[in-house]
Write a protein that binds this DNA or RNA. Structure first.
Length: 303
DNA sequence: TTCCAGGGGTAGA
DNA sequence: TCTACCCATGGA
């Protein structure tokens, strides 16, 4: 634990996970790593994130792989971290990397299907998520009815305009609900959010008022159906967005059916039939039970 | 100019 | 439950 030459606080921790996985393959399993304020340094195989801290100010974490189940985490901040801020950052790393989640059931299923065996052999199934669920709610909203390039630019614009500058990394945090509620729908629209501006503003207001605490949705005491109903009750969250968020929450029994999934499944399993319905897609995934979303993500569609 | 993109909400049947 | 329509925005 020391001050760097730029007088920023830095400290190193080692976190242990329960199941081995490769950081590089994990980070590249889906697109979330390219959404701010995540930063993936492919050369150093280092994943970073910056976030606002409850004690005020902000902090950064940088993760590299130390061993199959060991992670070297460097925390950075403008000043020494208090215990609660350190805990928030480290808990965020555990959550983002899913260090406490087991994929043994998924891998058992994978061994029965040739296009999934690679996933079992390589220990796949883990999908990166943001340290904070509010951040993933907003990011998911920004994936609706747009291109991936625009999703990236929308999320970047939110950070650039309403995020806090983290001094050690000179990167901007993801904006808090307070910041986006204060911005208002007109400013959000002007930042390129389009019709999502109104729903995003309403979502931020619900969090600020205390009407919604998204972290209650992280509880394992609630049934998946109850979580799904709560998600769909939120402004701007429909079946696709709820499916994506359930997957990020570690519940894989619902598909997030979007134009990309429709195309992949149509070409892979239905001879490119143009009249394929969502109901037929749902039925095709029914045999995979509580692992449907991961089966879609890790199925070897090139076979 | 028109169409569509890793959809959601609403009205009407 | 299903369908039709609208919702901003930018790139092809």
């Amino acid at each position: 634990m020391l001050y760097s030459k730029h007088m920023h606080w830095s400290e190193v921790h080692v976190l242990e996970g329960t199941e081995p996985f490769a950081l590089k393959e994990f980070v590249n399993a889906h697109g979330w790593r390219s959404l701010a304020p995540f930063h993936w340094d492919a050369g150093d195989s280092c994943l970073s994130h910056v976030r606002a801290l409850p004690g005020g100010g902000s902090g950064a974490w940088h993760v590299t792989q130390a061993a199959p189940t060991e992670w070297r985490v460097t925390l950075q901040a403008a000043a020494p971290l208090c215990d609660s801020d350190r805990e928030v950052l480290l808990e965020g790393v555990r959550w983002a990397l899913r260090l406490d989640e087991s994929f043994a059931g998924f891998h058992a299923l994978c061994r029965d299907h040739a296009p999934l065996r690679r996933a079992a052999v390589q220990g796949q199934g883990r999908l990166l998520r943001s340290p904070d669920l509010w951040e993933d709610l907003v990011k998911t909203l920004c994936t609706t009815c747009t291109t991936w390039a625009r999703t990236q630019s929308m999320v970047r614009a939110l950070c650039d305009r309403w995020g806090e500058l983290e001094l050690a990394t000179e990167r901007r945090t993801f904006p808090t609900p307070v910041a986006l509620a204060a911005a208002g729908p007109h400013e959000l629209r002007a930042a390129g959010l389009g019709y999502r501006a109104d729903t995003l503003y309403r979502l931020a207001e619900r969090l600020v008022s205390g009407e919604l605490d998204p972290n209650t949705l992280r509880s394992s005491d609630i049934s998946t159906d109850a979580v799904r109903r709560a998600l769909i009750a939120l402004p701007g969250i429909g079946p696709y967005a709820a499916g994506n968020l359930l997957m990020l929450l570690g519940r894989y029994d619902h598909l997030a059916i979007d134009s990309w999934l429709r195309r992949v499944v149509r070409e892979g399993w239905f001879s490119d039939r143009t009249d394929l319905t969502d109901a037929e897609i749902e039925r095709a995934f029914q045999p995979f039970g509580s692992w449907k979303a991961l089966v879609y993500w890790f199925w070897d569609w090139s076979r």
